[in-house]
Structure formats: structure tokens, C-alpha cells
């Protein structure tokens, strides 16, 4: 099995107010596409309840940095009590949703995802030594890149939602 390193786990923020869910989803999709991530949607639930719509989204886009390392950012978005509202902005009517949203980020670095060094104990040993000493700099660089990407998408989301501290 490939080795998965957990770099960030359960970092989250929440928001309450007006949002355009379609644009928000597009923003996420576009952001990951522009940065070379492949789409990987794990959950996409939409449920209608009496107190509003509930959307649960879990995406885990991944980027193969090389044929050895892969970065994955898992974003879980839970949008609750969504109700449609119409607001007027500069003489234009906009259909938005009012509700609660929470976003959780996890970041993973998967090394040897093609499992080239798993067939024998000696290969696995060589891989571990190389990762710890010879290619330590490279692995650290990948880790930094993954966390920086997570920070960037988090900033982008907060800025999109007009949150004050971003």
C-alpha cells in the first residue's frame, strides 16, 4: 500500500449568511482545475427538508506531482437550512440562498502511489531511507506546496463569502 501522510486534519471554518451555491461550487471546481488538480467527488447530497435545503459535498481533488508523490486536498462542505431569497443589487434582481455553511479541510501527501517499492521488504527499506535522508528536501517541498494550496483555496473561499478575516 502507498504511504499516506496526513498534513492537515480537520481545519475548518463556518459561515452564516447569503451565498450563491452554484457559483460557490463553480469557484471550487475552477480553482482546482486551474491548478492542475484532477476532479474527485466523493459525496454530493442534496436534500429538501421543511427548514430548507441541505447540501453535503465532499470532494478530494488530487494532483500527481510526479510518478512518486500525489497531493490530495479533501474539502467537506455542509450547507444547511438553505432558503432561497431574492435581493436587489444595482437595479438587478439576484436569486441567492440564505443559510449556514461549514467547510473542513484535510490535506494528504501520498508517496509511492503506484506501489513500485512495495513488492519486497528490501525495496520498501530503500524507499524509507531515501525518503528520510536522500530525498527529504523534495518530500518537504511537496508538503509545503500541498499546505500552501490548501491555504490558498481557504482564502479564496473566505474572500468569496465576504468574510472579514482572510
Amino acid at each position: 500500500m502507498a504511504e499516506v501522510k496526513n498534513l492537515v486534519y480537520g481545519e475548518s471554518f463556518s459561515f452564516k449568511g447569503l451565498m450563491d451555491v452554484e457559483d460557490l461550487y463553480m469557484l471550487l471546481d475552477k480553482w482546482f482545475k486551474e491548478r492542475g488538480y484532477d476532479k474527485n467527488e466523493i459525496w454530493n447530497f442534496e436534500e429538501n427538508y421543511d427548514d430548507g435545503k441541505q447540501i453535503t459535498l465532499k470532494i478530494q481533488p488530487y494532483k500527481k506531482i510526479s510518478d512518486y508523490a500525489k497531493v490530495e486536498i479533501r474539502l467537506t462542505a455542509q450547507l444547511r437550512k438553505l432558503k432561497e431569497v431574492v435581493i436587489q443589487k444595482k437595479k438587478q434582481k439576484l436569486k441567492l440562498m440564505r443559510g449556514e455553511a461549514s467547510f473542513t479541510f484535510d490535506v494528504f501527501l501520498t508517496t509511492d502511489y503506484e506501489e513500485h517499492f512495495q513488492s519486497s521488504p528490501i525495496l520498501f527499506f530503500i524507499k524509507t531511507i531515501a525518503e528520510k535522508y536522500l530525498y527529504k528536501g523534495y518530500v518537504e517541498k511537496y508538503e509545503e506546496k500541498a499546505v500552501a494550496d490548501k491555504d490558498a483555496i481557504k482564502r479564496e473561499l473566505k474572500s468569496y463569502l465576504n468574510m472579514k478575516r482572510f
Binding site: 451555491v21 457559483d23 463553480m26 471546481d29 476532479k39 454530493n44 442534496e46 438553505l82
Partner: peptide, 23 residues
């Protein structure tokens, strides 16, 4: 991406909110 296209079409048909896709 064909599979994702079908998923997007289904979401659009169901009038779900996550219908826009950049891929």
C-alpha cells in the same frame, strides 16, 4: 470525464445546486 458529464447532466435535471462544472 464522460462519467462526470453524465453526473452533471443528472444534477441539472434534478435542478440541484451543484450543477456547474469546470471540467
Amino acid at each position: 470525464y464522460d462519467a462526470y458529464d453524465l453526473q452533471t447532466k443528472i444534477k441539472k435535471f434534478l435542478r440541484m445546486k451543484t450543477i456547474k462544472s469546470a471540467y
